[in-house]
């Protein structure tokens, strides 16, 4: 029982951390958008956490800015732009498509293509190996002889 309650506590802990500063919103859609946006922005201080999951001072300040911009009626894209103008590509968890990120976006496709090519080469090569020029009748007589020998 103790173990179960410990596990339950352990599971709800991150949720508790993330809701330290509950900002009031006039309606639920804004609140939903708020949580989506702070999940898509990286905390500049702590490198591998988003704004939603960070307790750093800068993350708190940026969450407050997101809240303010939402109440001012800004669109999601405008808020992401606001952050991008100040903190650069780093702040966006999903990198934008541009010259510098081309490899990031299409690299996996290139690798998939290479893998496919290698697969085709291997399969073709194998076909050559498993269709040897066998003398069928000679093989049959040899097999028949072998079976007779076993009886």
């Amino acid at each position: 029982m103790k173990v179960v309650s410990f596990l339950v506590l352990w599971l709800i802990c991150p949720v508790a951390v993330a809701t330290i500063d509950a900002y009031p919103f006039p309606d639920e859609t804004l609140q939903v958008r708020y949580h989506e946006i702070i999940a898509r922005l990286r905390c500049p201080q702590c490198l591998n956490t988003n704004l939603a999951g960070s307790d750093a001072m800068i993350a708190r300040d940026l969450r407050r800015e997101v809240h303010r911009l939402l109440l001012e009626g800004e669109s999601d894209e405008a808020i992401l732009d606001f952050m991008h103008q100040r903190y650069g590509d780093f702040i966006l968890y999903k990198p934008r498509l541009m010259a510098g990120t081309w490899l990031l976006w299409f690299g996996p496709l290139v690798f998939l293509g290479i893998a496919g090519l290698i697969l085709v080469i291997i399969v073709r090569h194998r076909k050559d190996v498993i269709t040897p020029d066998v003398d069928r009748s000679r093989l049959d007589t040899l097999l028949a002889k072998h079976r007779r020998g076993q009886d």
């Binding site: 500049p44 201080q45 001072m57 800068i58 300040d61 940026l62 800015e65 100040r86 650069g88």
Partner: peptide
Amino acid sequence: AGRLAIDLGVYG
């Protein structure tokens, strides 16, 4: 309020 710092892209 840390507003100028945000406009400067400060994170610490």
